[in-house]
């Protein structure tokens, strides 16, 4: 097995509300990085990170599980976490060992309860965060649904990948208070 120096290892936790398709995103990332030769699907129970029989049957991640891929000579350890509130402790454990958090948000539903909780947890741990807006191709999914109410006036903006920031420590739940 290839050995990586510490600067070339990143632990990244995929966090978000239940049903935001974190596991499917992890599967797609592994496939895109050529870590697996087949795109696993949650519906078919073929994802790398949901391997437990109970997880496959319920189509929900029940415990944090790791997977890794190499991207630009760096080993990315992905930690897929549960989005169900009952298993939130596993999510917190994953964030504690992560270098960064990928906060997955469903474009249909916007920021939900666990989205807010993981954002607060990541803020408490001072973790860098990337927000992934998922399922934008769904019929009712769209950035118009999920952007901040403060930004709603600018409906003609091109919503390609963009960045946002705040001078103070930003409250994601507030800034992503999206119309439901």
């Amino acid at each position: 097995m290839k050995v990586y120096d510490a600067p070339y290892i990143r632990n990244v936790a995929l966090v978000g509300h239940s049903g935001s398709r974190k596991t499917q995103l992890a599967s797609a990332m592994l496939f895109d990085a050529d870590a697996v030769n087949r795109l696993g699907r949650v519906d078919e129970g073929t994802t790398v990170t949901d391997f437990d029989g109970e997880e496959i049957a319920r189509r929900h991640t029940l415990s944090a599980s790791p997977a890794y891929a190499e991207w630009k000579k760096t080993k990315i350890n992905l930690i897929d976490t549960p989005g169900i509130a009952n298993f939130f402790s596993d999510t917190c454990c994953a964030l504690r060992v992560a270098d960064a958090a990928v906060v997955v948000v469903d474009a249909l539903h916007g920021a939900e309860v666990i989205t807010e909780k993981v954002w607060d947890e990541a803020a408490a741990l001072d973790l860098p965060c990337v927000v992934v807006l998922n399922r934008l191709d769904r019929e009712r999914g769209g950035v118009c649904n999920v952007r901040s109410s403060r930004c709603r006036a600018r409906s003609d903006e091109p919503w390609s990948p963009f960045s946002f920031r705040s001078a103070s420590r930003m409250n994601c739940a507030e800034s992503l208070t999206w119309s439901r």
Partner: peptide, 16 residues
């Protein structure tokens, strides 16, 4: 934590 990149993803293709 001064900038928070936002990626958008459709069901099948990832724009990471």
């Amino acid at each position: 934590r001064r900038v928070f990149p936002l990626c958008v993803r459709r069901q099948r293709r990832t724009w990471v």
